[in-house]
Write a protein that binds this DNA or RNA. Structure first.
Ligand SMILES: [Zn+2]
Ligand SMILES: [Zn+2]
Ligand SMILES: [Zn+2]
Ligand SMILES: [Zn+2]
Lengths: 132, 132
DNA sequence: TTGCAGATGTTATGTTATTACATCAATTGC
DNA sequence: GCAATTGATGTAATAACATAACATCTGCAA
């Protein structure tokens, strides 16, 4: 997916996510953008919808939050599964791809005649700093 | 985890999930149990909390729903990662384990000095019947 | 019997996400 | 130019998901 020019709201939301230390909820993003004229959740959700579509932002299902992609420009996203390690203490997120994991999962679903659309892999735990 | 005797509310919630065709949201469970005296969400959430702890129910993070374990008595759960394939059309859920996937993911996080606590793998798509 | 722990009941509130409808701006075809 | 279309935006209301706070009850052990 090639990323088109972002609109004003999309840029604002994306900038907030890029500058953030970790994942943010839609309502946290909303609060950070009130000074820029944001008033309603929908302004955030609509921007996020596009940013997710363009692949520049990921949604973390297990914590209802959003994070800027850590590998911008990496076309792995278009044909591979992304996995996340999320620190439950500091919120830091690590993002990675593994073709072997991808292979195993896709092999299994194919055997079940299941047609995959979207896969979520999220590992919650403690990062090195927080586990110490 | 050995499952202790379930309390009244836990049994009611578990029975609803076992008899269901697919995953249910907490509020759907609540509605199904109003005839049995359930009045508030917390009655459901408290029962679910225990059932999740005992490993007899799983939470599907990507659809905010809960499903009875498809492999009761299988102690794989205590040391392995569970993955789900969720049909977005009919709601059917398939549950499986794969030690190779487990290995790869855990190998990667160990390399990052990340201490994993809970892992979510959920594949949304279409089951064989619905994809036809 | 008293004290405790675990389960339950109830109300209120907090958090996340969507529906419905109006308006605005840029583009296209006439 | 000007209507028609399309995509983006603004706003209010509501739906859906989850937890906090506090009271009560029940079984059991000291
Ligand atoms: Zn990414
Ligand atoms: Zn951390
Ligand atoms: Zn299971
Ligand atoms: Zn199906």
């Amino acid at each position: 997916m090639t990323t088109p020019q972002l609109t004003k709201n999309q840029s604002l939301v994306f900038d907030v996510l890029e500058k953030a230390e970790g994942p943010l909820s839609a309502y946290t993003i909303l609060d950070k953008l009130r000074d820029h004229g944001f008033r309603a959740p929908l302004q955030v959700y609509r921007a996020l919808e596009k940013l997710l579509e363009y692949g520049v932002v990921h949604r973390l299902e297990s914590i209802n939050s959003f994070v800027a992609c850590a590998h911008p420009g990496d076309d792995c996203h278009s044909h591979g599964i992304v996995a996340f390690a999320i620190c439950e203490s500091c919120g830091q997120v690590m993002e990675f791809h593994d073709h072997e994991v991808d292979h195993r999962l896709m092999g299994w679903v194919r055997g079940q005649k299941f047609k995959p659309e979207k896969t979520t892999i999220e590992i919650r735990g403690l990062c090195e700093a927080c586990a110490a």
